[in-house]
Design a protein around this nucleic acid. Sequence first.
DNA 1: TTGTAAGCGTTATCAT
DNA 2: ATGATAACGCTTACAA
Lengths: 325, 325
Amino acid sequence: MKDVAHHAGVSTATVSRVLNGHATPTPETRARVLAAIEELGYRPNALARSLRTTSTKTFGLLISDLVNPFFAEIARAVEEEARAHGYCVVLANADESAEQQATYVRALLDRRVDGLLVCPATDDPSWLDEVIASDVPLVLLDRTVQGATCPVVRADGAQALADLAQCLIRAGHRRIGVIAGPADTSTGRERLEQFSAALGGLAVDVVHGDFRRASGARAAAELMDLPERPSVLVAMDNLMGLGALEELRRLGLVVPADVGLAVYDDQPWFPLLDPPITVIAQPTVEMGHAAARSLLALIAGEQPSDVQLNARLIERGSCGEVDRG
Amino acid sequence: MKDVAHHAGVSTATVSRVLNGHATPTPETRARVLAAIEELGYRPNALARSLRTTSTKTFGLLISDLVNPFFAEIARAVEEEARAHGYCVVLANADESAEQQATYVRALLDRRVDGLLVCPATDDPSWLDEVIASDVPLVLLDRTVQGATCPVVRADGAQALADLAQCLIRAGHRRIGVIAGPADTSTGRERLEQFSAALGGLAVDVVHGDFRRASGARAAAELMDLPERPSVLVAMDNLMGLGALEELRRLGLVVPADVGLAVYDDQPWFPLLDPPITVIAQPTVEMGHAAARSLLALIAGEQPSDVQLNARLIERGSCGEVDRG
DNA sequence: TTGTAAGCGTTATCAT
DNA sequence: ATGATAACGCTTACAA
């Protein structure tokens, strides 16, 4: 910057003014400075600038699992909305681990992001104190944590789960196996509760997984090993659904003849299976956009309210019709 | 930091020394400082630290398309390896756009990342000059660009494509439709060339896509609309393969009876289709790890050589057997 | 072992 | 309209 100033015969202050589009510099000095910048290939140091202005024009986005396409889509949407408003997104991947999440929260805070979007790995609220202390604006995405007072953006699956319950009961299912998410995540608990509630008194067999593929396979194996086999399986996330599908295949079980299957989260390949899989689809793109906008609002000093988007059931025939012979 | 120093009755220099694990501070002053840090909830400002030390302990990772699971897996692996060596990864998503890529290269350079990993969206080398000028270490991942002199980590598909060609010819295919990647990407060109070469004189019908889903559907439609229909389609990337699958389904065509299909990139759901899809699998995790290690080496002043991992054919039956009646 | 002070590359205040 | 200059929060000679 000093070089540029020298080259243009001005002070660094003027260079700064040109850089930041201030009104003051005269058109001709502006031209001289711009020429010098061009010639020297000068690029401002964002670190120094941020140190001075206390603004990094950067969001931190903490994702629970990057290889989960549900989160990848959300991340893409967040980044899209952020970019439209002049913000960069630093993406960190917690891999469904609470410790990694805490580590990254700290790393992002230390790097002075202007705002934080977190898809919490677990309910554990211990990391919250640090971000509150730093008073960096925070928005929770997809999942909540205990006692958080910040805006939350999530999909409401109650209606969709009720629809699914109806659909299964109508099809004659009386033994339902649920591959639930972790009990220490809000989505894991809620989906299970809402589904159970919608089922009325009907009991379900529940095995908890961890929202990842292998756990879906394990859970499916366990459920199909029960003395009284379920006639349909409901996987509460797409990766566990994938694992379940793999396990059923391995066991030589045919969907829906031997056992039905429904999955939470839609994926483009679900309709390609035989039979196409019945799913509950979440509005990922809208969630990402809404979350970024909430954070923007928070930064602008507003008080954005929570956002609840609706998930919806897409029936495709993988839940079959139970033979009532 | 000044507060901490006051609180502990020392100077900021001593606080700094404690923070950075220097040998000098006496155990008891160290304890006092640590206590003060704890009590005040002090967190060092990474920006200021980086400004001073010119090291951010951060890699920039520029991905061509985050919702492409191939890149998501790579990103995860890069992050994993980087974390193991004390580096954070800032992930940016170019969405297969050259302009967005250039924008992000600049943003990452300005933020003074210690190294850059780029999966180039196109061959366009214009952004290269800026990173060379900045002399931030650079590693190219998956794709190369014209005239780049930096280490490259990629998968070599020549053998796998030759195997696939053999497999198709053996099955009796004589009209092969290729859904190729963009001609302005190295992987787009190479895969097509290597496959054509392996086919010997046999002509192929080629339609270029953009490595994304919709283009795969369009290309499949175009190929199946040819006066002489191909008996098998080869999609040179998993997203275009997905699109092709969707289009074939829409057209009411059955794989492999009506038309065979092979796809570059494996995905967990390919084996679940009926028939399971024959694919060429790339070692994504190894690629991510290798790339991160190459960058680490570059930063350490070494001269890592290019890395070529082998892709491999996995035959699963979606290419059928042509009826030679 | 510890403190003083300069400097990293900016921006912003205050003069001019 | 422009130029000195202090300050942002940290690290590191150098001195004590």
